Amino acid sequence: MHIPPYHKKAIWQRFFVGALIGAVIAYCVFAYMYNSMYERLLENNLELKSQVTDLKNQNDALLKDKKDLDEKNKKELTVESIEVTVTNAKNLKLDHLTAHQMEDIIKAEINQIIGQEVRIIDESSELLTSTIENKEFAINDFTYSFTVTKIAITQTVKIEVEAKTSS
Rank of each mutant, 00 (worst) to 15 (best):
2 H>S: 07
4 P>H: 09
5 P>V: 09
6 Y>F: 15
10 A>P: 11
13 Q>A: 08
13 Q>K: 08
14 R>M: 12
14 R>P: 02
16 F>R: 12
16 F>G: 07
17 V>F: 10
18 G>F: 10
19 A>C: 10
20 L>Q: 02
21 I>T: 12
23 A>F: 10
24 V>H: 05
25 I>N: 04
29 V>M: 13
30 F>Y: 14
30 F>M: 12
30 F>G: 06
30 F>N: 06
31 A>V: 07
32 Y>E: 12
32 Y>P: 01
35 N>I: 03
39 E>W: 07
39 E>T: 10
40 R>Y: 07
40 R>H: 06
41 L>W: 14
42 L>D: 13
43 E>F: 06
48 L>H: 09
48 L>G: 01
49 K>W: 03
49 K>S: 13
50 S>R: 03
51 Q>W: 03
51 Q>T: 06
52 V>E: 05
53 T>C: 00
57 N>Q: 04
58 Q>A: 15
60 D>A: 10
61 A>Q: 05
62 L>M: 14
63 L>W: 05
63 L>C: 04
64 K>V: 11
66 K>Q: 06
67 K>N: 04
68 D>C: 05
68 D>E: 14
70 D>Y: 09
70 D>G: 11
74 K>H: 06
75 K>H: 15
75 K>A: 13
75 K>R: 14
76 E>K: 14
78 T>E: 00
78 T>V: 11
80 E>Q: 15
82 I>N: 03
82 I>V: 09
82 I>F: 04
82 I>P: 01
83 E>K: 15
83 E>T: 15
85 T>D: 09
86 V>L: 03
87 T>G: 04
89 A>T: 00
89 A>V: 00
89 A>E: 10
89 A>L: 01
90 K>N: 13
90 K>M: 08
94 L>M: 13
97 L>V: 15
104 D>Q: 12
105 I>F: 12
106 I>Y: 00
107 K>P: 01
107 K>D: 05
108 A>W: 07
113 I>P: 01
114 I>H: 01
114 I>E: 10
119 R>Q: 15
119 R>F: 14
122 D>L: 08
124 S>K: 15
124 S>I: 07
126 E>W: 03
129 T>A: 02
129 T>K: 15
129 T>R: 11
130 S>D: 15
131 T>I: 10
131 T>E: 11
132 I>H: 02
134 N>C: 08
136 E>T: 11
138 A>C: 04
139 I>H: 02
139 I>L: 02
141 D>P: 00
142 F>W: 02
142 F>I: 00
144 Y>W: 03
146 F>A: 01
149 T>A: 08
151 I>Y: 05
151 I>Q: 05
152 A>V: 13
156 T>P: 08
158 K>Q: 14
163 A>P: 01
163 A>H: 00
165 T>A: 02
166 S>H: 07
